[in-house]
């Protein structure tokens, strides 16, 4: 059976929260997966107090080594999972490729001018 890397919705009504899971493709969305790779909180969190130039952020927890392994053995990410995994350079970006490339260029120049803490997956792109 096909393995998929996909999101499983948890959380409450109007407060979604997702587990990033590896599961058989034909099992139910929230059934017990083979493995929980991480989480994805799709609700943007306000910038941390004291962070004057802070931006809102979305929290993602991910075991990237494990994600690479599952992709290596043929697990197929869903579109959303693809988008998330491509952000950390595990996969080629499939969506908004131009935009992301632009972002990389921008971040690169920013990093060159001032050593900023933003890291981008430049080696994979």
């Amino acid at each position: 059976m096909v393995l998929r890397i996909r999101l499983a919705r948890f959380g409450k009504r109007h407060a979604p929260f997702y587990n990033l899971v590896v599961a058989h493709a034909r099992t139910a969305r929230n059934s017990k997966p083979l493995e929980v790779l991480g989480t994805y909180n799709s609700v943007p969190q306000p910038p941390r107090p004291g962070d004057t130039q802070g931006r809102p952020f979305k929290e993602i927890k991910l075991d990237s080594a494990r994600a690479r392994y599952w992709i290596g053995v043929g697990a197929q990410p869903s579109d959303t999972a693809w988008r998330l995994l491509s952000m950390v350079g595990i996969l080629e970006p499939k969506y908004r490729v131009g935009q992301i490339k632009q972002q990389v260029v921008k971040a690169d120049s920013a990093a060159r001018s001032a050593t900023k803490s933003t890291i981008l997956p430049k080696d994979e792109l």
Binding site: P44, I60, D63, S64, R66, M87, A107, S117, P121
Partner: peptide
């Protein structure tokens, strides 16, 4: 802890990836 964090800037918000272990 900060080393395990990876920030990917987006248009309206940043995506903060935290490395965890299964």
């Amino acid at each position: 802890e900060a080393k395990r964090m990876q920030v990917v800037p987006g248009r309206r918000w940043d995506f903060v990836f935290q490395d965890v272990s299964v």
